[in-house]
């Protein structure tokens, strides 16, 4: 998962890599429907403070942030199919990520997200704090909250997510931020974006 690049060591490597200069950020227009991850998943931002990253963590995901990915990360996962992990594999040989299955029910998706994070972040300090039914992309889905920290770092991050399985594919939006200040500062916007999510037909290429 892309959050791992924000470790101090990797941040240095990121800055030292000349090709990273080509990664860019675009402002998200307020109140205008935006198709994310080049799919039919479409959302509308209530304010003009979000930026989308041109470097997508995987073909079926996209990241937005207000202040930097270390401080507020809005992640979109759109159309994950059976047999695919939700994050990009980082160490497939030694630490393979669990795969989505189209037969998964909402609680299974939450367990998949937790297991994927434990592996991607190399942490045992991850807890799911609440799970409840919720509408998402006009479908019955799930809303869940979670808390985690990573090894050798006292920073506690909180997250909230909405997910649904539609026609055998997974759609999910997650918001993650430090529990101090940044989660409370961004969650209202994030919830509004999650509420706005619809699945529109993708135009033929």
């Amino acid at each position: 998962m892309i959050r791992r690049i924000l470790s101090f060591a990797a941040a240095a490597a990121l800055l030292l890599a000349p090709q990273s200069a080509t990664a860019g950020w675009k402002a998200i227009a307020q109140g205008k429907p935006i198709a994310v991850a080049k799919t039919g998943l479409t959302v509308t931002a209530p304010s003009g403070v979000w930026n989308r990253w041109s470097l997508r963590p995987s073909k079926k995901s996209e990241l937005w942030t207000k202040d930097g990915l270390a401080l507020n990360e809005l992640a979109f996962y759109s159309g994950v199919t059976s047999g695919e992990p939700i994050f990009r594999e980082v160490d497939k040989k030694n630490s393979p990520l669990p795969k989505f299955n189209s037969k998964m029910l909402a609680p299974d998706v939450v367990a998949l997200f937790e297991a994927s994070n434990r592996i991607a972040l190399k942490t045992s300090l991850f807890s799911v704090d609440s799970v409840e039914p919720a509408q998402f992309v006009g479908q019955p889905g799930v809303r869940f909250t979670f808390t985690y920290s990573v090894q050798n770092n006292d920073l506690v991050r909180k997250g909230e997510a909405r997910a649904a399985v539609l026609r055998g594919q997974l759609y999910m939006i997650t918001f993650i931020a430090p529990s101090i200040y940044y989660f409370d500062n961004g969650i209202a916007d994030a919830r509004a974006i999650m509420d706005s999510a619809v699945l529109l037909p993708v135009a033929a290429k």
Binding site: F8, A11, L15, S20, A23, A27, K66, D67
Partner: peptide
């Protein structure tokens, strides 16, 4: 540490600035 990381990547590294 997280805020400094964000500033280092998105402010001091000119090519990676956030539009907002």
């Amino acid at each position: 540490g997280a805020v400094a990381d964000a500033i280092m990547i998105h402010r001091l590294f000119v090519g990676n600035r956030l539009q907002s």
